[in-house]
């Protein structure tokens, strides 16, 4: 069991959790992630380690409430315990003095970007950070990023904070202005894809940190596989960071989309149970409901029915041959 020692809300859907995990805190380096399982019957989800304090034995996770498990996680409070936290997993970021680096972080991607920017700064780089989000509310960790950056550019889709525009516009502005030796991009897959298209044009080497579906996180299942440079790679052991110019983002986006529908079904199941049981959570439930448009929900319901059909399957049934031979 891993205790949550503090919890802070960054924005409506983004939370920072500090979790007691002394061994992981001691071993972790920038770029590593953990696999978290919230409770029995919970799924295993990957989360990047946003910060760690080896002395206090604490790691910091920044969680966005999107799917079922992240919602459950965000509902936990200070003092609550998480069932399983495994890590630190993945290859740590390769840090060296490149010269001038641009760190582009989109949405919660800013959280995993922070330790990388910190390490890059320490290694002597000139660090220019570009933070992007849909609106002011979704720009997180600005103060912390400023502390380790030589310059910070903020971009919002709606112009409610910083400059109006996409992350790529912010990055391009820097590239056009001065020589950039290296770029790091972390955020939603689409955002990384477009940053990479841009930096490819200017021939700036770019590292991305991929957030694929994972199950075990130790290289055992292949759920996390992506195509990089024409070869199949496992994000959990070979990554999570890759040369962004070689990643097949379109393939990855499709794989991510495939699980979204399933996730919606799981959330509906969850809402079924929780909405009525606890009116206080109605607000949260509504938030999630919004994610699921009614059409998708309808489609999901059909499948949910499919699922109940499973009950009839004989999965845990003992082999008749075994039964026949066991004992008499």
């Amino acid at each position: 069991m891993y205790k949550i020692v503090s919890k802070e809300q960054f924005s409506q859907n983004v939370f920072r959790l500090c979790v007691e995990a002394p061994l992981i805190a001691r071993a972790c380096r920038a770029g590593n992630f953990v696999i978290v399982r919230i409770a029995d019957k919970g799924e295993r989800i990957p989360l990047t380690i946003a910060a760690s304090d080896a002395e206090k034995g604490i790691i910091t996770l920044v969680v966005q409430r999107v799917g079922l498990s992240s919602t459950r996680l965000c509902e936990l409070n200070e003092g609550d315990e998480i069932l399983d936290v495994v890590g630190p997993l993945g290859q740590p970021t390769h840090i060296e003095n490149h010269g001038t680096v641009v760190c582009a972080g989109g949405g919660v991607g800013v959280a995993p970007m922070l330790p990388i920017a910190t390490a890059l700064k320490k290694a002597g780089n000139r660090v220019i950070s570009v933070l992007a989000g849909r609106s002011k509310e979704l720009i997180i960790l600005e103060k912390e990023v400023r502390a380790v950056s030589d310059e910070v550019i903020i971009m919002t889709d709606d112009g409610s904070y910083g400059d109006k525009g996409l992350v790529t516009e912010g990055v391009e502005r820097v590239i056009k202005r001065e020589k950039v030796d290296k770029c790091f991009a972390i955020g939603p897959a689409v955002m990384m894809k477009f940053v990479c298209l841009l930096t490819k044009k200017y021939e700036i080497p770019t590292e991305v940190s991929l957030n694929t579906i994972m199950v075990d996180g130790t290289g055992m299942c292949g759920a996390c596989r992506v195509t990089v440079d024409g070869k199949t790679k496992f994000v959990c052991v070979d990554g999570p960071e890759f040369d962004g110019h070689k990643v097949d983002f379109d393939g990855m986006l499709k794989r991510l989309a495939a699980f979204k529908d399933m996730e919606r079904e799981e959330i509906e199941k969850y809402n079924d149970v929780h909405c009525e049981a606890d009116p206080a959570q109605n607000e949260d439930a509504e938030l999630i409901d919004r994610n699921a448009e009614w059409r998708v929900a309808l489609r999901g319901k059909m499948k949910a029915k499919d699922r109940t059909n499973i009950e009839r399957c004989v999965m845990p049934e003992l082999d008749p041959v075994y039964r026949a031979r066991s004992l008499r």
Binding site: K254, R255, F259
Partner: peptide, 29 residues
């Protein structure tokens, strides 16, 4: 081979055996 709904036997069996994915009460899809 990286199309959706193609997986390793390890993933398939892990989802069913370890994560109990076929049980409607499990969170794993």
């Amino acid at each position: 081979e990286n199309s959706i709904n193609i997986m390793s036997s390890n993933e398939y069996l892990t989802r069913v055996n370890l994560m109990d994915a076929s049980n409607p009460e499990s969170d794993t899809p």
